[in-house]
Every structure is written in C-alpha cells, then in structure tokens.
C-alpha cells in the first residue's frame, strides 16, 4: 500500500521476501520511503562503486551463480535490494566480507551491474572508518604471499 506523507514523498509498505539462511525472518515487513533522495550511505556506495544499484531488477542470476552463498547471510541480489530500500542492515551483513571479487556475477548480470564493485564499496564504508574485516591470531603457516597480500588489501583498512 502507498500513502502520501507530505510534499512529493510517498510511503510504500510492502512485504519483501528475504530468503537467506540465518536472516532474522524469511519475510520482513518493509517500509519503503520514496522521496527526493536516497540515504547518504546508498549514495556513497554508488559513488565508490560507480554502479547504479537501482538498475537491479532482482532476477537473481548473481545469487544463482555466486560460489560463496553458503557463507553469506544475504544473497548478492538481496544486498542490492536492501540498498535500493535504503535499509541499513546491509551495512552489517557478512556477505561483502565473504565475496572474493571473483566476478562471476559481474559477467552475468543482464543489467550490467558490477556487483563486486558494490560489495567492495560496502567494505570500504567500514574499512575507511579504520575497522578491519580480517582478524588473525597468527599468519596461517604455508599460505603464500599472493593470498596474504590479497586478503590484507581487500579486508583491512
């Protein structure tokens, strides 16, 4: 349902399916505010990634082909959907930290959204506050430097 909440802003209330494992509930009642602009963090994700998250039409191809979904709390398409809704829960999702930028989604997205860039932007929002996505007590023995450099570059400030 939709109601006018002043000026040209509309409030749309609808059910949004959330299908990921471990997410609080499989169906969440959502309030979508359509107004003159999206929240700052969504705009920032779009700036950092250079991608239009509103281009996504939820076909789910990215989620179907993603080899890392078993470790994700939100599927890639759900990450995009929450961004479209301006839902801040996307900022505390584990999914961007499980994404390995393998670009399987990028080559298949029919709308040309580079989802790996969106995931990177979500990581950067956290990393640029000085927080880290990589905690280790010791460097795992035998792991080559190509992995260590990759992990520290993607997952630490």
């Amino acid at each position: 349902m939709a109601e006018r909440i002043g000026g040209d802003a509309l409030r749309v209330t609808r059910d949004v399916g959330i299908g990921a494992t471990d997410y609080p509930s499989r169906v969440t009642r959502h309030t979508l505010r359509i107004s003159s602009g999206e929240p700052d963090f969504v705009r920032r994700v779009e700036e950092l990634s250079g991608e239009d998250v509103f281009a996504c039409y939820q076909c789910g191809k990215c989620s179907a082909g993603c080899p890392f979904t078993s470790g994700m709390d939100l599927l890639p398409a759900e990450v995009l959907r929450l961004l479209q809704l301006g839902d801040e829960r996307v900022l505390s999702s584990r999914s961007p930290w499980v994404c390995a930028s393998c670009l399987a989604c990028e080559v298949r997205c029919p709308k040309g959204v580079d989802i790996a860039k969106v995931m990177e932007a979500l990581r950067l929002l956290i990393l640029r506050k000085g927080e880290t996505g990589l905690t280790w007590r010791e460097i795992p023995p035998g792991v080559p430097q190509i992995a260590l450099v990759g992990a520290t570059r993607k997952l630490t400030p």
């Binding site: 078993s70 792991v143 992995a147 990759g150």
Partner: peptide
Amino acid sequence: KVECCGAYQTVANPEIARER
C-alpha cells in the same frame, strides 16, 4: 573450471576456500 577457488579467502575464511 571457471568458478573461484576461494582466492585470498583462504587466509581469513579457509573453510570457504576448502568447500570451493
């Protein structure tokens, strides 16, 4: 043959790389 091996996740999340 074109799916990710887990890449650098082998450092932070070795279980993910192992599954791959």
